[in-house]
């Protein structure tokens, strides 16, 4: 089953119109004093519990806006 996401401009659209941009993780760590290990951890390591998470999505086949939404990886659906 496919599902829909809510674009802030276009409203509910099929997920295949969008590009997944990953978890919202706050600002990237300060470059000053960032160790190589901390940097690699930041770029590759993720905590993905089976519960809703805030994410970035890009409406590439629509209006072209980047937006945030909360989605449950256990059901694929948006949680509002």
């Amino acid at each position: 089953m496919t599902f829909r996401l809510t674009c802030p401009v276009c409203g509910k659209r099929d997920v295949y119109e969008f590009t997944f941009g990953g978890q919202e993780r706050g600002p990237r760590p300060e470059q000053d004093g960032l160790s190589a290990e901390e940097h690699f951890r930041w770029t590759q390591f993720r905590l993905i519990p089976n519960e809703p998470q805030e994410e970035w999505w890009y409406h590439g086949q629509g209006c072209g806006v980047w937006f945030r939404t909360t989605r449950d990886p256990g059901t694929n659906r948006e949680v509002r």
Binding site: M1, T2, F3, V15, Y16, T19, F20, Q23, R46, I48, N50, E55, R71, P73, G74, T75, N76
Partner: peptide, 13 residues
């Protein structure tokens, strides 16, 4: 499918 998930969803796509 590109988004992280723990489902068993299949799609017509």
């Amino acid at each position: 499918d590109p988004q992280v998930n723990y489902t068993n969803d299949a799609t017509a796509y």
